[in-house]
Design a protein around this nucleic acid. Structure first.
Lengths: 133, 133
DNA sequence: GGTATTATTGCAATTGAGTTGCAATAAGTC
DNA sequence: GACTTATTGCAACTCAATTGCAATAATACC
């Protein structure tokens, strides 16, 4: 088990059954709210999607979950307890894979070339997966 | 004037007043449909936002316009007749600036590290602009 | 130039992700 | 176990974006 209960209670939040179930269904693969909702339904766990939204938003704030948006504009969520990495998304079937890249040089260049105080970045690749090639 | 009329007619499309007005209000700065709509209203040009959406979608297909999505999930559009570049977005006020970066090495690394046939990528930076620092 | 053909427009209605208000419920506390 | 208050679920709502369709306007043809 991970430190999630402590993370919650240290901020005055409570560990509830819905939060436990949602956490148990999170993954290192990014998932949409609809996908998480479907997984829960299959397990006959009844949780309103509003609760899923609120829980995920809270998990993001607590650093438990990472949120990303892709082209189709829906948010996807994945466990944050992993190394910083990026995604490759198939233009045809939507399949998402992780990819590890060292973008330090690029971020350094961006900091140099911009008047902004750069804090974070998004980097995603698009193309065709093996099946769709 | 640019080759837009030819691009349209070569595909069997027509150059219309709304398309002309929308094109005239495009920029090298990314703008949302709402922003384009406001600009047109100020010029007392009455164009339904449905038409703006359809026109922009078509312009994207013709390679006249580039579409991007940012964190807040709304689409922004800018003229595509420019060098490949990236955006820096202010976390506080939403200001967007362009930034030029050479990401060739990174894209090459991604191609090497992935089983996907990589075709394109999105790269954006977030932080604070001078005013919001 | 005038007319026929058909792409395009504008309106109204719809979709779908995500949010909000609020009463009912359930954690954690004493 | 009773109390306090965070949390849940429902219904209603927001807002970007899409769709169907009748009315309109741009090109082609005479």
């Amino acid at each position: 088990m991970i430190l999630i209960k402590e993370k919650l209670s240290s901020q005055g939040y409570r560990m509830t059954k819905p939060r436990q179930a949602i956490f148990a269904n999170l993954d290192h693969e990014p998932q949409s709210v609809a996908e998480i909702s479907d997984r829960l339904k299959k397990q006959k766990i009844k949780i309103d999607k509003v609760t899923i939204y609120r829980t995920l938003t809270q998990f993001v704030k607590l650093g438990i979950v990472e949120e990303t948006q892709f082209k189709d504009k829906i948010s996807v969520y994945e466990l944050a307890d992993q190394e910083h990495h990026h995604h490759v998304i198939c233009d045809n079937c939507g399949k998402i894979e992780d990819i590890c890249l060292d973008e330090k040089i690029l971020v350094a260049a961006a900091k140099k070339n911009s008047s902004f105080k750069i804090k974070s970045h998004h980097l995603e690749f698009f193309g065709l997966c093996k099946k769709c090639c």
